[in-house]
Amino acid sequence: MHPAPSLILFTTLSGLGFGLLAWLCVTLSPPEGMAALAWLALAYALCLSGLAASAMHLIRRERALKAFRQWRTSWLSREAWAALVTLLLGGGFGLSLLLGHPLLPLGWLTGLAALGTVFCTAMIYAQLKSVPRWHHGSTPALFLAYALTGGALLYGQTWPTLVLLALTAALQIWVWIDGDRRLARSGTTLASATGLGTEGSPRALFPPHTGSNYLLREMVFVVARRHLLKLRVLAVLLAFALPAALLLATAVSYFNFICLALYVAGVLLSRWLFFAEAEHVVGLYYGR
């Protein structure tokens, strides 16, 4: 799939934002007063800039609000609702923090809604049977793991961050290895796509058009396949190994800007790989 910058930014930033919001809302000693306001402002800035990036992916942006309508069947619509509900709940909880009377149950509800939003985002991709690498329960698990890790790192929770970095790294590496086999496991081949398997073994002879088209640009992105291993190693170093090493070396619980910058760069790279590696079955019709 084409790794659109708008979608990479959307999933990375909103994942961080909702992850931070979840930590803010479920922590036992939430910040109060102006500190609460600053933390919430950071979380909302991340969430809203992520959502703005997702709106940039639409070609007809002026109709974006129509996306709220089909929540009964569409994960994209559910994601829009979940984000709105989370931000409204978070606003209520934030107000209670600002006033110095934290409504903890409202906080837990907000935290749950924040994770629900990340789940809906992941389900937009995981629901697609046409992309076997994504069509798996590990896709929402991985998105949630990244969001929780990023939130913990942002909120300066050293030990939870270290545990989550290790868990997310293990999950990510397994997803890469298992993901490489999912297209073969799906059973979709050029033979099933054309129904010509009973006559013999089919091979794409020539394409329907000499130039490129929307399908090839959007769904048959093969550039990443050459450098996969190098990029995966780099992503693991940036997102997990280096931040963990830095956290262990300095052992400070306050906001560590370098750690965060490394982590965000690693997540951006892993999200680029998430899209760029994914094989859409339509590529089979083109012999790719």
Binding site: M1, H57, L58, I59, R60, R61, R63, A64, K66, A67, L76, I124, Q127, L128, K129, S130, V131, T188, A193, N213, Y214, L215, E218, M219, H280, V281, V282, Y285
Partner: peptide, 18 residues
């Protein structure tokens, strides 16, 4: 249509084009 392209992603046959 808002032009999000998700339906084209969901179609395994490549039947939809933006």
């Amino acid at each position: 249509c808002i032009g999000c392209g998700l339906c084209a992603w969901a179609c395994p046959y490549g039947a939809r084009e933006m």
